[in-house]
């Protein structure tokens, strides 16, 4: 087990370097003046430009630049945004909101996705199964921002069940609606994956043996079918964090949630290059670390891979 985690950690290192390098390479090595790139459409402000040159060590050779950028990244020295505030400071302030949102979305998609998926899987071919399958396809087919607008309009404005825009300090309750929107597409995926997995495991030999042992149907389902079916679902949930981050940009934008996504959204709209690079780099780090956590959970669920 320990060895497994160490190995996953070691495998993570090249990925970390690769991903940050990719970001850095895209920004600073593609054709065009990187300073101009960071400024976007607005005119280059010489004072800020000088500061940026220093921040990104643009006078140094490329590889040195990259390693200095890495050093800045891990020491959380992320430079200033265009209004002069340190990006790190901003992030510390807005990160908790996004984490709350992500946790709520994850809980929503996991709990409901698994419950619906299990019930559909156990009743394969019945009405419930068919309905849920079609509904999940429709959810996947609708872009998240359309879902967001519609939910905001219907639940927030028409029905008045929730605040259509969050703003302010963004407490847990206020975030429920945006979290549902954020988790909706993944909910459909979790549901479908759980269903497939349940159906596959129902026909496994060990399930038949468990039945032959004299276990009740309920126990066979919970102990032998469910536990084994969760393995691919957990893998998916881990990989899905990336999609949640992307989705958070849209969702936070629509519901005016003062989180990392919205900040990134605004930076994109304003063309604030340096802030975009910093935030994306941090998010990539978070994503890689979260995947390591999922690996641990995975090893706990599936004893076979601890020894692989």
């Amino acid at each position: 087990m320990t060895w497994y985690i160490i190995r996953r950690f070691l495998q993570m290192i090249p990925v970390f370097f690769g991903a940050t390098f990719l970001v850095y390479f895209l920004v600073f090595s593609l054709p065009g003046d990187p300073i101009q790139a960071l400024f976007g459409d607005r005119p280059v402000n010489e004072a800020v430009a000088a500061q940026l040159r220093e921040q990104y060590n643009l006078d140094e050779p490329f590889l040195v630049q990259y390693f200095l950028y890495l050093k800045n990244l891990v020491t959380f020295n992320l430079g200033n945004d265009f209004s002069g505030r340190p990006v790190a400071e901003v992030l510390v302030q807005i990160f908790p909101v996004t984490i709350r949102l992500a946790i709520l979305a994850l809980i929503f998609e996991a709990v409901f996705g698994i419950i619906f998926g299990v019930v559909a899987g156990l009743r394969k071919g019945k009405l419930f199964d068919g309905t849920v399958l079609v509904a999940s396809l429709i959810v996947i087919a609708i872009p998240i921002f359309v879902l967001g607008f519609v939910m905001q309009f219907v639940v927030g404005v028409k029905l008045g069940w929730a605040k259509p825009t969050v703003g302010g300090d963004a407490g847990w309750l206020d975030l429920i609606l945006p979290a549902i929107v954020l988790g909706l597409v993944s909910f459909a995926y979790v549901l479908r994956l759980t269903r497939t997995s349940i159906i596959e495991n129902m026909h496994a030999d060990y399930v038949r043996t468990a039945t032959a042992k004299g276990l009740s149907r309920q126990r066979v389902v919970v102990v032998h079918i469910l536990r084994n079916s969760m393995i691919p679902v957990v893998t998916f949930l881990g990989a899905d964090l990336g999609a949640l981050m992307g989705g958070a940009i849209v969702t936070e934008g629509i519901f005016n949630v003062p989180g990392v996504g919205q900040r990134l959204y605004q930076s994109v709209l304003r063309g604030e290059g340096p802030t975009i690079v910093s935030i994306v780099s941090v998010l990539v780090m978070v994503y890689i670390l979260a995947n390591l956590l999922v690996d641990v959970l995975y090893a706990w669920l599936d004893p076979r891979i601890r020894y692989a």
């Binding site: 496994a204 030999d205 060990y206 399930v207 038949r208 043996t209 468990a210 039945t211 032959a212 042992k213 004299g214 276990l215 009740s216 149907r217 102990v223 032998h224 536990r227 084994n228 393995i231 669920l301 599936d302 004893p303 076979r304």
Partner: peptide, 24 residues
């Protein structure tokens, strides 16, 4: 039938590789 299984009629299946649940 559930009552009878195990206590009155036991079973030994064919393939030892797939008949034990790998996670328990």
């Amino acid at each position: 039938i559930v009552e009878l299984r195990g206590s009155s009629i036991g079973m030994v299946p064919q393939d030892p590789m797939s008949n034990l649940n790998p996670v328990w």
